[in-house]
Every structure is written in C-alpha cells, then in structure tokens.
Nucleic acid binder design. Sequence first.
DNA 1: TTCGCCATGTAATAGGTTACATGATTGC
DNA 2: GCAATCATGTAACCTATTACATGGCGAA
Lengths: 173, 173
Amino acid sequence: MATAQLTPTSYIVLGLVETAGDATPYELARRLAGGIGNLWPVPRSQVYAESERLAGSGHLELTQERAGRRRRTYSLTSRGSAALDLWRRVRARALPDLRDPGLLQLYFGAEAKGLASGRLAQHRARLSDYEELLERGEAEGRPGPMLALRAAVLHERASIEFWSELAAEGEPS
Amino acid sequence: MATAQLTPTSYIVLGLVETAGDATPYELARRLAGGIGNLWPVPRSQVYAESERLAGSGHLELTQERAGRRRRTYSLTSRGSAALDLWRRVRARALPDLRDPGLLQLYFGAEAKGLASGRLAQHRARLSDYEELLERGEAEGRPGPMLALRAAVLHERASIEFWSELAAEGEPS
DNA sequence: TTCGCCATGTAATAGGTTACATGATTGC
DNA sequence: GCAATCATGTAACCTATTACATGGCGAA
C-alpha cells in the first residue's frame, strides 16, 4: 500500500479501468490502442506492469482466476477513483515536448528539402487517419476523446504547414 | 567497442559534440539547455551517461585530465561522425507523439473550461519565449536551429488555437 | 486435428529521473 | 577569507522497450 508517485502512465491505466469497468490488462491495452494510445503511446507490457503497481498501492484491486488462464482482472478501488478525480482537477504543470525525430535531424543539419517531403507525406497520412476517426465519431460516448482528437488534428495541420513551407522554399516557381 | 543501437539521445549528444568541438558533458548540457533541449529535453545526468556509452562504442573519444578536477573531454571520432552523417540522411520512421498532460486530462474527463484557460496561459507564455528567441536570432550560425524554432512556434499556435476555442465554447456571448 | 492467429503473461536489459555530493571561482 | 554560485560528477531507483513464451480457439 506504499504511496508512490503516480505518473501519466498511471492515470492512463486508471482512466482506462474507469471507463472499461473491470478489465484485464490485455483488454486495457486493446482500448488504449484504439484511443489515447495514438496520442500517448504506452506499450502493452507497461500496462501489465503499471496495473500491478497500482494494485500494490491500493488504487486497483486484483482478482485472479484460479483455473485455466489465470487471468488477472483489475477494478478501480475508491482510492483509485479519488486519485483520478483529484488529478483531473489539478492543473498540470508540464507542457508537451515536441520530440520530433525529423525536427531533430533538421536541427542538426539534415538536408531540408528531402526531409521535408518525406515528413510531409507521413503527416498527411496520419492526418487522414485522424480525420476518418473524427468522422466515424469514435467518441466512445464521452466528449474527451473527441476533443483530444481535434487537438491532434490541429497539430497535424501545423506539422503539414511547416514541412510544406520547407519543401516549397526556394522551389523553382 | 560494442555496437549498440543509437537512440535519439545519442544523436543529440553526437550533434552537440560536432558543433561544439571537444567538450565536457557539462558544456554539452549547457548548450542543450539553450537550444534543442527546449524541443527535446535530455537531463544533464543523461548527457554524462550517454557520452560514456558513446565513448564505449567508439563514437566519441574521451580525454580525461590527470590532475585537479579530472574533467572529461569528449571529441567526435570518425566513426561518430559517420554515424551522424548517416542518420541525417536516413528517413526517420517515427512521427512525434503528442504526449500532452493537459490533453490527457481532457481525454479522461477533466472539466474543459478551466483546464483550457490554464493551458492557454501556459502556451502563450511559451510562445512568447520562442518568438523572442526567433527575433534575437539565436541561430547559432546554422539554419537548422532557426527552422526547428519556426516549427515550435507553429505548434504553439496550434495549441493556442485549440485551447482558446475550447475556452470560448459555450461562452456567454 | 492441425495451423494460425488472438489472448495473455513475463523476463532481461537499457534508459531516464531525482537527488545527492563536492571541487573551483568570484564578488564582496 | 567567506558566502554564494557555477562546474562537475555519481548513485539509486524507477520506467520503458524488446523480445520471448505459451494457452485457447476457430477454420479448413
């Protein structure tokens, strides 16, 4: 029941359990992949590890099958629920980091035109994924996911704007 | 001289050594903080660790003072230089992840208005930092840093657009 | 009934974060 | 010559990444 610091990964797992109800880590990971995992990837093995930690700290409760696959099912405890609520209300201090491998290359002198056109294609592809999700209304019933998706779209557009300017710069007209 | 996989952190260190010429990890960290560290933070202790690894793999060469502080100075080997050049030319596969703590809260149901106005202020502050850097022409003599900064500005604007729409939504008119 | 894929879990290793520790320098 | 601050390094701990391993189940 040691109260260690909760990380973003912790809140992702807690949030997933909250919306899923009781679930196995596998199930959580599946939901992750279709949703917030696009914006904040967490590898499956981490979902296992984090669930276990959260059970250790009393934020989740574990029920394990006795027979067969001995599946682990986690559910939110009142402690976990309270932690999640509090987190939702506290103003996050950290801003996102860009951490774009392509920008890194650009920063350190990669040839701009070729880099830009490659990145442009990648971002366009991702943008259309996101736009399709938006249309299909992958809202999961809650407003949060849709809003986050809108944000993701805006960032893709920003990337596209950037790289396409760069690709066009000094272009023969 | 084991050839382990190089990570983004590796290339950051290699790139810094390249532009700095021979340097101690401390000096590298200082340059980081004023430059690419804004977009891709690497803690100082990692700069030490990574330099050591890179020396172990033959990408950097270590010279250590015999007397006094026994400072460690690293310089780029031809192997390191080749690795950097290759990296600049190979098309990066991974797109950036958003990983915005605020978006995470939004995704998992935080109250939108309050969150948005807080985030808005934070992004505006960062935007003006970036704009100031742009004006001061913190170019470090190379074009890469300025271009990366432009990208950062566009992303800040995207964030600001997102959060300000959200803050305004349903606002009494 | 066997092949292949989905479901489920775990282990090993590397990488990152935080905090601590102490040696030089410089302004007063 | 002392206090404050910069320079420099390290250790402990936690997290994440990658790869492996195997059980069930459905289709052919």
